[in-house]
Design a protein around this nucleic acid. Structure first.
Lengths: 238, 238
DNA sequence: ACATCGATCAAACACGTGTTTTAAAATTCT
DNA sequence: AGAATTTTAAAACACGTGTTTGATCGATGT
């Protein structure tokens, strides 16, 4: 049981601890926790088999450490916090969608954190509850509050929740439908331009839908003043 | 190598072949192919361990047979074929969403086919390609044509594809986000009424968004005649 | 220079799991 | 009814895989 509090393990820059962590991220992302093999990780990382148990206790300990990083990398980003003040609700929504998409699928981002979360959703490990509570829930409540503000309903309202599902579904479908998409739309490449195009689409699609559902718009519907956005944010405090 | 062409294996109604198939569906749905254990399936089905290899050759043979049934059960249903004639595009979309949701998540439907597909999406087995080609692709093209008709664009158009992603994403998020949803919205129960409520929401949400994107509507925008649906279906033949 | 401690290594261990085997029971056909 | 075939049963086999072990190497401090 080594202390492992960063004892500068080597004169060379490549620490085995870090190299295992890095490689394990890719391997776990490819096959999920259960199917991933410790021997595979070690071989690819170029370290000895026993190194995993030495540095992380056991396979699950390694996975937990990988997952903690992955959860932050996949869902945590300060840039697109919808709770930030300033801007119209529409701009906030746009910023959120753009930021999350770029964060999840951007070319400059590693793809493995999202894939790990995909596996975690298909078959949660005990660590999943923590990920939900610490990473997903606060973001979910923030975006729900934003959507509630747009449609003029409380954050916990049933319609608000359904709309949140609709918006989030459009985003995560590019993660979970990945394998289908590769076969049904093989030309699609996730370049920065494409990502912005997708984000623009989701934003426009969602905002148009939300506006049509907003109480303010509904009250004054059938006259179609096209710029009547929902300005009833006060009623949407959670 | 038995023939297995339904040789009425027993006077009792419960055939071990059928019982294995039934149980395997549940077990594979819970843990996915790799993590599922043959011993678990046999124990739960109340049959001997060797029965799996006798009736299905090996574990993969059993899985393939289960998957073929699951793919049909999860995605195949005549009732909501959007290619069927009759009705406005809006009604067709509504029918499609309602039918698919009820088919995937209905209380009277077994939940395991959808869960198996979830695992297959997270980590495709070799059988996945066939499922995409035979089950998913034809349905996907039909719904794409319908959406193209609504927004007045060809079926293969980029915007049409993005819109299709948006609509499908709203539906499958209830499958893939299942574990998150259980924690973030624990009160949600998939009763028949709730399912209709969700389907109504997705239909309304999507149709409002699609209408705002339709070329017909865009050309006459900013006057907001609320019933100006897209009637340019002819241009959307695939 | 020597002792000490942490890190690495090759080998072995323990166990779970898919599969095979061999025999017995049940069913079907003549 | 009797023989042939199909189905079930228990045990054993072969192998992959997480983990442990004891030895060795290297660095650090006195």
């Amino acid at each position: 049981m080594p202390d492992r509090t960063q004892t500068s393990t080597g004169p060379l820059g490549d620490d085995t601890h870090a190299r295992i962590l890095e490689t394990a991220g890719h391997v776990f992302a490819e096959t999920g926790f259960q199917a991933a093999k410790v021997r595979d990780i070690c071989a690819r990382a170029g370290v000895n088999l026993a190194a995993v148990n030495y540095h992380f206790g056991d396979k699950l300990g390694l996975y937990n450490e990988v997952l903690r990083y992955a959860a932050c990398a996949a869902g945590n980003a300060a840039e697109f916090d919808p709770a930030l003040p300033g801007g119209t609700p529409e701009a906030k929504l746009r910023g959120f969608v753009h930021g999350l998409l770029r964060h999840m699928y951007g070319e400059d981002r590693p793809a493995w954190p999202v894939r790990i979360m995909t596996h975690e959703l298909a078959q949660p490990t005990p660590a999943f509850q923590g990920v939900v509570d610490q990473i997903i829930r606060p973001r979910h409540e923030a975006i729900r509050a934003l959507i509630g503000a747009i449609i003029g309903r409380p954050s916990g309202d049933r319609v608000t929740r359904l709309c949140t599902q609709s918006v989030m579904g459009q985003i995560i479908v590019y993660a979970h439908g990945r394998e289908v998409l590769k076969r049904l739309w093989p030309d699609l490449r996730f370049t920065t331009e494409t990502l912005d195009e997708i984000a623009d689409h989701i934003s426009a699609f969602s905002y148009a839908a939300l506006r049509s559902m907003s109480r303010a718009n509904r009250a004054s519907s059938a006259n179609g003043a096209p710029l009547r956005t929902a300005r009833s944010g006060k009623r949407a405090a959670r």
